[in-house]
Design a protein around this nucleic acid. Structure first.
Lengths: 136, 136, 136, 136
DNA sequence: GTGGTCTAGACCACC
DNA sequence: GTGGTCTAGACCACG
């Protein structure tokens, strides 16, 4: 489970986490019954307060997405809804990309540089992923 | 210019407005020197407080997108030389790209598709821009 | 009539003007029946909006300090109260000086410099006064 | 530290508080490192909104007088090197002195008396400082 | 009519 | 418990 929070976006951190977990669940990246990181581990990884991490899970539990088993961790619940279709998922991502494009325009960054920046960041992301794999 | 706000998204309303104005300015829907709706008109249209609308404009002014003329209204500025260094600007965009990459990961969208989606959206953006140009 | 406004103090400009007129009336600097500058002249001298100047006079009129004779100007009304005693006046000024002393402390300006700064500013003030006298 | 606010003076409440804290710090009533009352306690004591109290502290922090430690309270900072250039600082003080001079003019207090009043108040201020020192 | 500021209440993040 | 932010209402200054 890879999570990313933006402290400057104005969106409450606990909501950012909940949204990402829901996205992963909707796409099938997370499978029913699978364990999420512990509150403690999550807080440490994201450099946030444990209360904030706990609140994200509590939010997800109140929405019925996960189940907090006291003392045993937090598990994704079986959901009746089938995973989202591919078209729906890419449309969601497209909306986020549009916002990035607008921002690039105002920062006066040309299209070519935006594309190469994305390639660069993707490479760095994959690198971090494989480094994490080797450590586990 | 048509604006929409979502009160349940968790994103501050003033930021939603600022983002949409920036998008309109980037797409060419709004032209330099053009007046934006008055704070009062905008507040009434979106059913928000005048202060929230004012804060959106104030945020845009601090980013150099518009100019607030006291007692006279809010006007779109010509795209000026950005006051930020290039490294700062591309770093800022990089942070946004990281969030998109994580989201793509959760939605199980492969890197190649993310890149082509960005190219596609960029093309659509440039198309909207030239359409706006032809209308002026 | 010499007036001075501070736009950064947070005190409404129209109140600053009213306070100074009342101080002058209380000390006898302004005499009953004496004319105050016209709204237009006051606004120009202080670089403020005419509405703001008019509001100051309107405030003073509602307190019964002055009388606005339509088309003829603004005049100090006869007041039943006798001018303030000297001790009261110097105590008022002392309170203002205390605030300046605190500010000087935080700006790390030594006592000797504060005193010489006051002498310097007093000289400049008297100079402006006599220049104005020669022009009238 | 005892604070008072005057709701009718026209001076913003948060500035009144900031001024009094600065005065206490300058006089030595408050010592570097000492904790100020919490935002909530201060708000309750003065019967003001928590935000107004918070804004006073925020103003003091931006002036470098205190340090707001998130979740831990507000602490008086040691008088540090002022970040402002000397010319800026003395100009700022000069503007305040001009206002005092005009007030003295309105109160018909001669220059010589204004100067001796300042010397007198400075002496009283230094006396209060050493009294505070002896108490520590 | 225009935008800007101060005070307030509710919620967020942190210790 | 702590401070910080977002939304709101009332008032101020300006054209």
């Amino acid at each position: 489970m890879i999570l990313h929070v933006n402290f400057k976006s104005g969106v409450p951190v606990y909501l950012q986490i909940a949204l990402q977990v829901k996205a992963a669940a909707a796409a099938g990246t997370l499978r029913p019954g699978e364990a999420l990181p512990s509150v403690r581990a999550l807080a440490e990884e994201l450099r946030i307060n444990r209360n904030t991490a706990a609140r994200a899970y509590s939010e997800l539990e109140s929405e019925g997405v996960v189940e907090n088993r006291h003392g045993a961790g937090c598990y994704l619940r079986a959901t009746s809804a089938s995973p989202l279709r591919h078209a729906v998922r890419s449309e969601r991502l497209g909306a986020e990309l549009d916002a990035v494009i607008v921002q690039a325009h105002h920062l006066q960054i040309p299209d070519s540089e935006l594309l190469s920046l994305l390639r660069e960041r993707l490479a760095a992301f994959r690198e971090r992923q494989s480094a994490a794999d080797r450590n586990s």
